[in-house]
Design a protein around this nucleic acid. Structure first.
Lengths: 70, 70
DNA sequence: TATTACTGTAATATTTATATTACATGTCAC
DNA sequence: GTGACATGTAATATAAATATTACAGTAATA
């Protein structure tokens, strides 16, 4: 998988987890201390989430960080 | 696992893969287009490798990127 | 001892990730 | 229709990742 596709894949997973938990981008941003705009970009595959960001998201959603690389 | 421990764990894995392949930090740096200094910091747990860096290392060493989060 | 290869480390510069601010659009309830 | 809520998006600013340069130290070896 190329980096471009990885970005999109991560974005889809973040969005999936967020919706699964019935959260708006704004609420999620608040809970994990990041900006709504950045979450939007990550979900749309515009930005690549950092290792630390993935770590924080995984912790919040109670999933293994490896999930983002499935 | 905390972020601190994750850093150290990733560092150990990078170093393990590098030594397993009989590479110096300098050679590895050359092959994956990053600085030797940064590799040194990652291995010692001083810096946290970005998602893109882990992606590139996994690709180079022919391991799954999930390996770094085991 | 002198040389070579390898690594640590610090200071500074650059690039990327992320935040902030602001505005636009769409949806849905009232 | 309008008001609240959700999301996209752009411009600028800040923080973190990474590069560059430079020097020190250790180990091996000729």
């Amino acid at each position: 998988m190329g980096l471009r596709k990885l970005k999109n894949s991560i974005g889809r997973k973040v969005k999936f987890l967020r919706l699964e938990n019935n959260l708006s981008q704004e609420k999620l941003a608040e809970y994990v201390n990041m900006s709504r705009e950045h979450i939007s970009c990550i979900e749309r595959g515009k930005n690549l989430a950092s290792t630390e960001t993935l770590y924080n998201l995984a912790k919040f959603f109670k999933v293994d960080i490896k999930y983002f690389f499935d």
